[in-house]
Amino acid sequence: MKKEIQVAGFGGQGVILSGFIIGKAACVFADLNAVQSQSYGPEARGGAAKTAVIISDETIGYPRPTSIDVFVAMAQEAFNSYLPDCRDDTVLIIDPDLVTQSDVGRPIYKVRVQKIAEELGNKIVTNIAMVGALTGIYDLGVPDEAVKQAVIDSVPKKFMELNINAFEKGLEAGKNARPE
């Protein structure tokens, strides 16, 4: 089993944290191997940010993606830039409020994760809602509960409930999503 996941957006959205959580879920809360790599510019906010996670039940050699199974885009620019790296059958997931132009002639999962976060009262958990949506849509090979544990283990205690809610709402939205 080997899964390659790429999440991209702009700096400050928590894109890299989302990759960290998925990798931690696989490594620490499920008995798998994972590597997480990232690339970002020198800016603290803005600029492109991208993370890739590889999950496998075997040792992982080359740590960067070579054949992306699922791509999550959290910004228009990220969608445009990294779509060419995907296979024809790569599962695509976007937030339609953040990626408004996504008509590329193939089915895409659209989940309004930023709206979920706003309804919970804080846009900052958009990334956690997206981790939930990704877990609901795509079989990461990691139990949902392991991902939830990784969220709990990775966010500040003060905002624990908010993050758990964001994850669960995102998960539910993901499970109900159909490609369109």
Binding site: G23, N33, A34, V35, S37, Q38
Partner: peptide, 9 residues
């Protein structure tokens, strides 16, 4: 920088 910024178990 590759291994330094890579996360692994």
């Amino acid at each position: 920088g590759e291994v330094g910024h890579l996360r692994e178990k």
